[in-house]
């Protein structure tokens, strides 16, 4: 299935959704989907277009928005990546629907995005920090996070103590 076929089939199935193709600045076939329709589009991609395998969930912090990036592949057909993107212009409280109900493999990766980038996922079964501890100040992968050496004295009070660790 070529990229054009995927796009035309998606447009057929969702005539009311503004699905954009990112043409500049990317080496992969990239679709930008409105955040509120992400789950529908993703379910359609999995069930009808054969993109049954979610490889990677990640996020990027741009000055004017957050982007959540999904890399999809087809196990049945093989072939290249389909990048699905969601733009989240709300820098204060970025929130997007979780795709864990569709691909359970997104669970830990969404938790990682939540932990390190501070984007919350609605309907996630177990949204907790994964790498850092509860109470860690800030989200390190955001561009406004101060990248310096944090001392033990500074961080130790934020760390949960037994029995709640």
């Amino acid at each position: 299935m070529t990229n054009e076929e995927i796009l035309s089939k998606l447009k057929e199935a969702f005539p009311d959704v503004a699905i954009q193709v990112q043409t500049e600045e990317t080496k992969d076939f990239t679709l930008i989907v409105p955040a509120e329709r992400l789950v529908e589009v993703a379910t359609h991609l999995r069930d009808h277009l054969g993109f049954d395998y979610l490889s990677d969930v990640t996020s990027v912090d741009y000055p004017d928005r957050f982007e959540v990036v999904y890399h999809l592949f087809s196990m049945k057909r093989g072939g290249g990546v389909l990048t699905l993107k969601v733009h989240l212009p709300d820098k204060e409280h970025p929130e997007v629907d979780s795709v864990t109900p569709i691909w359970p493999g997104a669970n830990y990766q969404e938790r990682e995005v939540y932990d390190l980038m501070g984007i919350s996922f609605r309907n996630h079964p177990d949204l907790r920090r994964i790498m850092l501890w509860d109470g860690f100040p800030g989200h390190p992968l955001r561009k406004d996070f101060e990248n310096r050496l944090y001392t033990y004295k500074e961080l130790e009070p934020t760390r949960p103590k037994p029995p709640n660790w």
Binding site: D28, S55, D56
Partner: peptide, 21 residues
């Protein structure tokens, strides 16, 4: 140049990918 790419290989433990912007 300004842009982004996702590349992956079959590492011994599974699919190892890098997403660079």
């Amino acid at each position: 140049p300004k842009g982004e790419a996702y590349a992956r290989i079959e590492a011994p433990k599974g699919e190892l990918g890098f997403y660079l912007v």
